[in-house]
Amino acid sequence: MVIRTEGLSFNFGNQQVVKSLNLQVPEGSIYGFLGPNGAGKTTTIKLLLNLLQTQHGSIHIFEQELQKNRISILSQVGALIEQPAIYQHLSGRENLLNRALLLQVPAKRVDEMLNLVHLSNAANKKAGQYSLGMKQRLGIALALLTDPKLLILDEPTNGLDPNGIIEVRELLLKLVSEHGKTVFISSHLLAEVERMATHVGIIDGGQLLFQGSITELEALSQPLIRIEVDNTVDAANLLKRKNYPVADVTDEYVYVPYTSKIQIGDINALLIQNGYVVFSIGKQQKDLEKLFLSITQNA
């Protein structure tokens, strides 16, 4: 595990903002850390970077305890926290040169990074005049400057236009697949993470509600057969008598867990043979967005 926390909790005064978190971020994964605004994502990230002192529980990064190995761990981590931290009175290049100076990275790496995030043309412009998307890209360049093994990105696509979002996504996918990096990325938008994440952790109210691979998350949302029929309650009773597990009954629909196409045909035939009028019948996939909402709202 690249990141492993055990029973990680954090209080601001009396308010507990992170509750007994057990994160497991495997090597080479893109871990989507999802949750609505105010769920405790940024606090967790600050704990992972030792910007906040761990109050309860433990944090291991690269299987090393964070407090005791702070500098050796941080030298292999690149981070972008909330809005990127950029000196407005310096140009984009100067911002990178300053960081390169601090971390003893050769200056030629600065130009590589500017190229990578498509800021070469604006490199000598004051960063204060950058658009939000450009600042975000400069922030990503700063995080990548030392070629870190682990990237921790807090809402990195905030303020980016759709093209920018796609670029960042492709960049991260490339970093993981070609360079073997691990990416820990937080977001309040499932759709943004869904397309690249290999693993997902969902946090709400400071608690981890789900953690696992993206396929495990998809498995949670089992497909259903939705049947539109004239008398839903009687139809549901008939299905039960014939040993079909009924998931839900509403005024208009009956829901049965989906197993195969043949089963849809069987149910249709059964209902018609028993004199019901079937208006429609078909497979329905609960999408992840709804699942994300239902997980965070049921908590």
Binding site: I71, L74, A79, I81, A85, I86, Y87, L102, L142
Partner: peptide, 18 residues
């Protein structure tokens, strides 16, 4: 104020420098 204005304390203290 250089750090306050740019909101860079957090990045300064998350660098591998004591």
């Amino acid at each position: 104020s250089i750090e306050h204005k740019a909101d860079t304390w957090k990045s300064l203290f998350s660098l591998p420098i004591s």
